[in-house]
Computed example of a mutant assay.
Amino acid sequence: MVFVWSIYAAWLVLIVYLTVSAFGVKRDTEEHIAQRLGLMFAMILAFLLPRVPMFRFVNFAPVNAVLSSIGVIVAVTGMAFLVWARQTLGSNWSQIVSAKHGHELVTSGPYRYVRHPMYTGGLVACIGSAIVVGGGFVFLLILLGVIFLWRVGAEDRLLARQFPDEFPDYARRTKALVPFVW
């Protein structure tokens, strides 16, 4: 049970960090309330679905200590990568796909390896969490996976418009989510 609580504690710390670090970011050039609501709805749905009788099979935690340890390490590694990416973005970060006032193309830190390291880190954290806890994290992985795949395309199009001289070369030399693969 300590592994399960470790996962929830790590996510709580991550959410608090992301919330606090959102203060002082550059303002979005326009509001996208549908994106904000869609992300919130997906997270709520992910934790409601395991309560539906036909989906109870995903409630498999706790598993053995070795697999749980691996899951915690994977989850924390994903979260650390996400935090590194968030720190590197600085005031250019946005919860939604949106241009910022004074937007800059960030290509350093984890952005040297993938164009969307926060999504990579988030998905890795969900995989580790699903190994340990199952339930909502299984559905969170699926739902966020779909949302993140959409956002990769949307952000790439936005960055191509915002940075027509720099982004195409950056996109050619840097994979989207998985280093050296995609």
Rank of each mutant, 00 (worst) to 15 (best):
S6R: 14
R161H: 08
A10C: 04
P117A: 12
H103F: 00
W182V: 04
L159W: 05
I142R: 04
G71T: 05
D28R: 15
M1H: 14
T107W: 01
S68L: 04
G38I: 11
P164A: 01
P53K: 02
I73M: 14
R36S: 11
P179I: 03
L177S: 08
R56T: 14
F41C: 12
S94K: 05
A9D: 01
Y17F: 13
F137D: 03
N64V: 03
V178M: 07
G134V: 09
T107D: 06
R115T: 08
E104L: 07
L45A: 11
K26M: 00
G128K: 06
L12H: 01
F137N: 02
L67T: 10
C126I: 00
D156R: 00
G71V: 02
V133I: 10
M118S: 09
V72G: 13
G38M: 07
A125C: 08
A154R: 14
I73R: 04
L37A: 12
D156F: 01
S69G: 15
V66Q: 12
L177I: 13
V83T: 14
S94F: 01
V20L: 15
Q35D: 14
L141M: 05
D28I: 11
T120R: 08
I44W: 08
T19L: 09
M118K: 08
V4Y: 10
L82E: 03
L159Q: 07
M40S: 15
L89C: 11
G102P: 03
M43N: 05
F23I: 11
G136W: 02
A176C: 07
L177E: 06
A125R: 09
R161D: 05
A42G: 04
P164S: 02
K175N: 08
V138I: 14
V72A: 13
V58R: 15
V178Y: 12
A61T: 11
L89G: 11
R172H: 11
V20Y: 15
A22Q: 09
I15M: 14
G90N: 13
L39C: 09
Y111E: 07
A61V: 07
F180T: 03
V52L: 11
L177T: 10
F60M: 06
V97Q: 02
V63E: 04
I15D: 10
E155G: 13
F47N: 07
G153K: 04
